[in-house]
Computed example of a mutant assay.
Amino acid sequence: MIDHVRDLASVRDATERLLTAAAKLDNASVAEPSRLPGWSRGHVLAHLARNADALVNVLAGRPMYSSAEVRDTDIERDAPRPLDVQLTDVRESAARFQDTGAEPADWSRTVELRNGVTDSASRVPFRRWVEVELHHVDLGIGYELEDLPEEFVEREIAFLADRFSGHPDVPPTRITDHARAWSTGRAAEDGFDITVTGPAPDLLGWLSGRRDGSALSTSGGPLPALPPL
C-alpha cells in the first residue's frame, strides 16, 4: 500500500539534500549545462520549482499546467535567475507542496496530471520524489544514481517497468539485479524473450533514459530500445 505521509517525508528529505548541494554552486555554474540536453542547471532548478506548484494544482483539482506552452515558457523565463533566487523558489514552492499534502483529503481519489494521465492522489508525493531525486542527479553536481535511497531505486524501477508494460515496441523483458526482478514490455506468451541484468542503479539509469545500458548484460537478444518517457 502507498503511504503518502511517508512519501511526503521522503520528498522533504530529498529536497533538503538537493538544496544543500545546490547552495555550493555560484551564479556562473547555475548557467552551465546540466546533464539534460538543452537545459542549464538553471532550467532544472526552475522546472523543479514550477513542478511543485503544478502538483499543488493537481492535488487541488486544477489543471497541472494551463498549457504545455505556458509550462515551457515559465521554465525558460526562470532559468537565467541568480542562484539565491533559484534556491528560494525551490524552497518556497516545496513548502507549498508540503502544506498542501498536509491538508485533510481523500487520498484514494483519482487526479489528473499532464496529457490526460490519471493516478491516485496517494501516488502524487512519490511522483514528486521522483522529480527531486532524478533532477538532483541531472544537475551533475556529484549526486549520482548510486547515491539514491535503495527504497526509491526499487520503487522507481518498478514504476518505470510498469510504464512500459504492454508497449508493442518493447519485447517481453525480465529485469533483474540478481536480488529482485521486474517485467516489462509486451505480454510474455511463452516466457520472456530477453533478460536484462545489472546493478539496480544501472537498471534505473537505462529505464529512465539517463544511461545507455552498456553496463548491463542481456540474454535472449540485444538490450531493448525503450520509447521516450
Score class of each variant (00 low, 15 high):
Leu55Met: 14
Val196His: 09
Thr20Asn: 14
Arg211Thr: 15
Ser108Gln: 10
Ser10Tyr: 07
Asp147Tyr: 05
Ala95Glu: 13
Phe152Leu: 09
Ile2His: 11
Arg17Gly: 12
Ser122Gly: 11
Arg180Trp: 03
Pro199Lys: 14
Thr218Lys: 00
Leu59Ile: 05
Ala54Trp: 02
Leu18Ser: 07
Ala188Glu: 03
Glu150Asp: 15
Thr195Gly: 01
Phe126Glu: 06
Val90Arg: 00
Arg211Asn: 12
Asp84Lys: 04
Ala225Gln: 15
Arg96Gln: 10
Thr15Trp: 02
Asn27Gln: 08
Asp99Ile: 11
Asp53Tyr: 02
Asp177Trp: 05
Asn51Lys: 02
Leu19Tyr: 00
Asp13His: 07
Val44Pro: 00
Val30Trp: 07
Ser29Arg: 15
Leu216Ser: 02
Pro63Val: 02
Gly205Tyr: 09
Asp78Val: 01
Ser29Asn: 07
Pro172Gln: 01
Ala49Phe: 04
Asn57Gly: 06
Val85Lys: 13
Pro201Gln: 11
Phe164Glu: 07
Asp193Tyr: 03
Ile175Glu: 00
Leu134Gly: 02
Thr218Leu: 01
Gly221Trp: 04
Trp206Ile: 03
Ala94Thr: 09
Trp206Glu: 05
Arg41Ile: 03
Leu216Tyr: 05
Val124Pro: 01
Glu16Lys: 11
Leu87Asp: 00
Ala200Asp: 03
Leu18Thr: 04
Leu160Cys: 06
Gly220Lys: 03
Val56Leu: 09
Ala102Leu: 07
Leu216Ile: 05
Leu139Pro: 10
Ala9Leu: 12
Asp53Arg: 12
Gly213Lys: 00
His136Met: 05
His135Glu: 03
Arg210Pro: 06
Thr100Glu: 15
Arg77Thr: 13
Glu144Met: 10
Asp193His: 09
Leu148Ser: 11
Ala95Asp: 14
His135Pro: 00
Asp84Gly: 13
Thr20Gln: 11
Arg163Cys: 04
Ser214Arg: 14
Ala23Ser: 15
Glu69Cys: 03
Ser214Tyr: 06
Ala187Tyr: 11
Arg41Ser: 10
Val170Ser: 06
Ala215Arg: 13
Leu55Ile: 02
Phe192Ile: 07
Asp193Glu: 13
Glu112Lys: 11
Thr173Glu: 04
Glu133Val: 09
Ser29Trp: 08
Val111Phe: 02
Asp53Gly: 10
